[in-house]
Amino acid sequence: MKHKIIILTDGDKIAKKAAERVAKNINGRCISISSGNPSKINGEEVIKLIKCAKEDPTIIMVDDRGDIGRGNGEKIIQTIIKSQEVILMGIVAVASNSAGSGIRVDYSIDKWGNIIKHAVDKYGNEKDNRIIIGDTINTINPNDVPVIIGIGDPGKMDGNDDLSKGCPILTAAVKLIINSYEK
Rank of each mutant, 00 (worst) to 15 (best):
G100W: 11
G100H: 09
S101K: 15
S101L: 14
S101R: 13
S101P: 10
G102M: 07
G102R: 05
G102Q: 09
G102L: 07
I103G: 03
I103Q: 05
R104P: 11
R104W: 08
V105F: 06
V105Y: 03
V105W: 02
D106N: 15
D106S: 14
Y107G: 04
Y107I: 15
Y107L: 15
S108T: 08
S108L: 10
S108G: 10
S108M: 08
S108I: 03
S108C: 10
K111V: 06
K111I: 12
K111Y: 12
W112G: 07
W112P: 00
G113M: 05
G113T: 04
G113W: 03
G113Q: 03
N114R: 10
I115N: 02
I116H: 05
I116G: 04
I116E: 02
I116N: 05
K117G: 12
H118A: 14
H118F: 15
H118R: 14
A119S: 13
A119N: 08
V120Q: 02
V120P: 01
V120A: 04
V120H: 01
D121A: 11
D121Y: 06
D121W: 06
K122H: 09
K122C: 12
K122P: 03
K122A: 13
Y123I: 11
Y123A: 13
G124A: 12
G124P: 03
N125Y: 12
N125C: 14
N125V: 12
K127D: 06
D128N: 13
N129W: 11
R130F: 10
R130V: 12
I131E: 07
I131L: 13
I132K: 04
I132T: 08
I132Q: 06
I132R: 03
I132Y: 06
I133K: 02
I133W: 00
G134D: 07
G134M: 04
G134K: 05
G134H: 06
D135L: 07
D135K: 07
D135G: 09
T136F: 03
T136M: 05
I137W: 02
N138A: 12
N138K: 10
T139W: 04
T139N: 09
T139D: 08
T139I: 08
I140N: 00
I140C: 02
I140A: 00
N141G: 10
N141A: 05
N141R: 11
P142I: 10
P142A: 13
P142H: 09
P142R: 11
N143T: 09
N143P: 04
D144R: 11
D144W: 10
D144K: 13
V145Y: 01
V145F: 05
V145D: 00
P146W: 07
V147D: 00
I148A: 05
I148Q: 03
I148P: 00
I148K: 04
I149H: 01
G150D: 01
G150Y: 03
I151H: 00
I151S: 00
G152K: 01
G152C: 11
G152N: 09
G152S: 08
D153M: 08
